[in-house]
Amino acid sequence: MRKPGCLVLFIIAIVLIISGLLIGPLAKSFIGEGVPEFIQVQQPHIELKPETIIHAGILPVTNTLLAALLTTVTLLLIFGLAARKMSIVPRGLQNLVEMIVEGLLSFAEGVAGKENGRRFFPLFATIFLFVIANAWLSLVPLFGAIGVEEHGTVLALFRGANTDINVPAALAIMSFIFVEYWGIRSVGFFPYMSKFVRISYFLPKNFKGIKSLGMNLVMGIIDLFVGAIELLSELIRLVSFTFRLFGNMTAGEILLLVSMFLIPWVFSDLFYGLELLVGLIQALIFGGLTLVFATMAVTPHGEEH
């Protein structure tokens, strides 16, 4: 606060917050309709479902699909351009991209071990980058402000792709498919399936005489039950993956909208900072959990006992 520039900025921020308080809906309830029309903020219209821009056959092209495509193109552009002209001594964009890849690789190797980390890296990195790029792109100013008019209503052309439940669901399905594939590839089909269908106690080779028959029967039933729970948990992961990301991102979006509506202007900046962090954390959680599940799947489960 020594420098006059700092002080000026601080005063401007305070003035903006106070004026935001005055013209927001909070003030409206106190001073009634005294606020001029043109600076009033419209009440946000919150819609869980993404809005369809146009229909292409049976595929509704939604604003979230457009945002997902934008994210894809952005990521591919950054990485493609950086990787096109690589040199031993990195320059410019290559530095950034290498830093990202190196950080993600060391994270993956830390979680899954040296060899498996390399194997899981492409999926993990793509999930992480896709989620974080979706989250951060939707925070770019004007991202949600470009609109198209349709049937008299204005629809946003882009909307954070993570807030469309189809995107987290697609990511969860990809993660699920890869985890099961890696599990089967590493452990073998029948050993992997025996994690879910536990009938080892009923096999003839484990029959240890008539005396322990009762005990075996009880253990076998418990084991069957454990297997069923394992199977269920595998499916529940899909749901938890989907709703964790969807819920967090949608909540963030709504939080921003509401904060902008309640106290317009600078107040919502705080939540922008928060949303940056949430985007990073959610990307890390989605990728990290995929890594953990993949590591668990490729470990022969005989070792767990």
């Binding site: 595929l59 699909l65 495509l69 793509t126 189809n166 669901a169 697609a170 990511l171 399905i173």
Partner: peptide
Amino acid sequence: PLLIAQLVNF
């Protein structure tokens, strides 16, 4: 269809 589109995209 949207889910499949997202899967393809990813």
